[in-house]
């Protein structure tokens, strides 16, 4: 039997993705940078008044119960979801095929499903200095009290639009346009040099 050829999604970070320790790591590695490469990244949008229906659909498909309110989100490690604008949500899954699952439950009366899996690059920063490094790039409050676990934020760094979800006490997942991802990655690496960083 012939072996199946599975198309491999290429990373836009590849030429600048150097596994290992960098910067001032001799005094300790204070952040770990990774490209998480989820199989599915979706944008869901509810028509006005249908937000609750869409949130129920997210719960039905992913098992994630989103808290009410702006930027509310949740993650279970394999899946993540958060609000990034009124009536709009980003939903991520490790595995492929999430768009097909949502297309069955998000009816035209509720809203829309847009598959951005190939259009966004997911970058994770984790470690005791994660807040410190991100605060150098983005003009938002990264303190746990202002940016709770699971919550999402839409913001920009030098016009590079970025969605950020807090997925741990000292861990953040960022979604950037694929075409800007390598430039953003290099900026993030430079910003991490002073604290010592490891690419995994």
């Amino acid at each position: 039997m012939a072996e199946h050829q599975i198309p491999q999604r290429q990373s836009p970070l590849e030429p600048d993705y150097r596994v290992g320790s960098h910067g001032d790591f001799e005094h300790g590695v204070d952040v770990i940078l990774t490209e998480t490469r989820p199989g599915s990244i979706l944008q869901l949008a509810a028509w006005p008044g249908e937000e609750k229906m869409l949130m129920s659909a997210i719960r039905a498909i992913t098992g994630l119960a989103l808290p009410d309110g702006a930027g509310g989100g949740a993650t279970d490690g394999a899946r993540a979801a958060f609000g990034f604008a009124p009536g709009r949500f980003t939903v991520v899954d490790e595995t492929e095929g999430l768009a097909a699952s949502f297309a069955r439950v998000v009816t035209p009366a509720i809203g829309t499903v847009t598959d951005l899996s190939h259009g966004r690059t997911a970058i994770r920063i984790a470690g005791p200095k994660a807040e410190w490094v991100l605060a150098k790039l983005f003009a938002i409050d990264f303190a746990l009290s202002a940016f709770p676990l699971g919550a999402g934020r839409s913001t920009t760094h030098h016009d590079v639009f970025t969605q950020i979800q807090r997925t741990g006490a000292d861990q953040f997942d960022m979604y950037v346009f694929r075409s800007f991802a390598r430039s953003f990655w290099k900026t993030l690496c430079h910003a991490s040099e002073e604290v010592g960083y490891e690419v995994q």
Binding site: A70, G71, P86, A139, I140, R153, T155
Partner: peptide, 11 residues
């Protein structure tokens, strides 16, 4: 009203 206080550069 959605995002809270942000720098004018985002607008």
């Amino acid at each position: 009203p959605y995002c809270g206080p942000r720098d004018v550069i985002e607008f």
